[in-house]
Design a protein around this nucleic acid. Structure first.
Lengths: 252, 252
DNA sequence: GGTAGCCTAATGTCAGACATTTAATTGTAT
DNA sequence: ATACAATTAAATGTCTGACATTAGGCTACC
């Protein structure tokens, strides 16, 4: 019985796995220098190119960083929350777009996660978090704001709410989920009327957070989720109508 | 004013970014074939090795897959939940271990997220989910179980709870968080007594889920979290004592 | 008509060379 | 002795050309 189906090809993937195991398993510590490419090539009995391809794979996952010059080389990278966060956003965004995840499913996941940190945020939020949220609400009320800027402000608002929980792991997980939703959210073009509705709910959230009222935040988030789904449904219906009766030819 | 700090070096990273933008931006569709390495080399005016390094970077993120032989090449990969999940586990695990995230912080994040899907799971769980959980509880009660097997069963139990919500996005996010916690959980060696306590709480969760009692699940999860943190505190205290008075020399 | 064998295009691997970067060393003048 | 400039060495980054391997398609033969 075989323990593992080892494809003899893809040497660079095998070498990358071997080094990754060393990092994950703790044989290689943070900031420790790997052997030089030439040494690794000899160690694994492959050419330098193959080693380089393996190292690039690891670099793509932010597991190592490289430095040129004397006393340069590949070093085990301390994975920062920022790097992990950036990767997660890319992955989550693609996951949603490529698998045709419906707006409802993504929206449900997002608000379920966000509501999870509402009680913590109610306990621990600082005046800074509150000030950020108020500022974003103010920005969202400006009439001249573009749709893109409105969405970005929306993300910043929710980000502040999540950060208020004071738990970096939670922030990392949630910020990815919220930001990955953005392309889907952008499909909802916001009318002046819907912006008002959203701002009202944001204000309710901020007020509840100011009063450290966890239940109030939760209720406002539930309401916001319901409203977002209503909007999406309306947009979807409008699209269906438009497809049945296509818009007039504007080539003239 | 510069729009971007373009390091002239690291051509392979630039090319990888260019192709990644094409994929994320929708210029390249799923299962579409990229130009051959030779063609890409000419297009970007670099050598084939550089192109290959760029492609390996993308392959490391599961953005492309490659096939050898005639009519082979690099194809845009449909990112599956499984692949994304595996990547997230690796990333999250490293993030926790490399940044010295405390057990309390990680634990809080995990249970906050898990409680987020309890109401959904109460609504939608199928008999299958319940059966899985009961089976895992039964396994956890076996006296001969190793610590590793107990932890694995614990993960499977919670995974079933999360899957019960019937939202793949939620499952993807949460499973990563739960599994990334495993190394930290493993640091708590489970005594027979603590296993009993955990099984009791798992049973409470399963019972509440069977009765579709969201509040009951939530309460049991809160209790489980508190117990896990108590255990961790006890282990930490024991370690401190051991360091102050090292264990007797066992070389004899 | 089916099958075996060749053909071809593509990735996988290798070897060697040169370019570039950067820290350390050496040399020199003050 | 110190400050500064030039050299050196070690490492990654890039290029070139070659060969190995794979796998789909085509052809020729039975």
């Amino acid at each position: 019985m075989k323990t593992e189906i080892v494809r003899p090809s893809d040497l660079s993937a095998q070498i990358a796995d071997a080094i990754r195991d060393g990092i994950v398993g703790g044989d290689l510590n943070v900031n420790q220098r790997l052997p030089s490419e030439a040494e690794l090539a000899e160690e694994f009995s492959v050419s330098r190119s193959t080693v380089r391809e393996a190292l690039k794979r690891l670099a793509a996952q932010s597991l190592i960083r490289t430095q040129r010059g004397a006393s340069g080389g590949a070093f085990v990278n301390r994975l920062s929350f920022e790097e992990a966060y950036a990767q997660q956003v890319t992955t989550s965004t693609l996951l949603l777009s490529m698998n045709a995840v419906s707006f409802d499913v993504a929206c449900e996941a997002r608000y379920a996660l966000e509501r999870a940190c509402a009680p913590l945020s109610a306990q621990r939020r600082t005046p800074d978090h509150l000030a950020t949220m108020r500022a974003e609400i103010h920005r969202q009320s400006q009439p001249g704001l573009t749709d893109e800027a409105f969405c970005a402000s929306d993300v910043a608002f929710h980000r502040a709410l999540v950060d208020g929980a004071g738990n970096p792991v939670l922030s990392y997980q949630l910020a990815g989920a919220v930001e990955a939703m953005q392309p889907l959210m952008n499909m909802i073009t916001f009318t002046a009327r819907s912006r008002e509705e959203i701002v009202a709910r944001h204000t309710a959230i901020a007020d509840a957070l100011e009063g450290r009222d966890a239940g109030g935040i939760d209720a406002a988030l539930v309401s916001l989720e319901a409203y977002a789904r209503d909007l999406a449904r309306a947009v979807a219906k409008a699209k269906t109508r438009a497809r049945q009766r296509p818009p007039p030819d504007r080539s003239a």
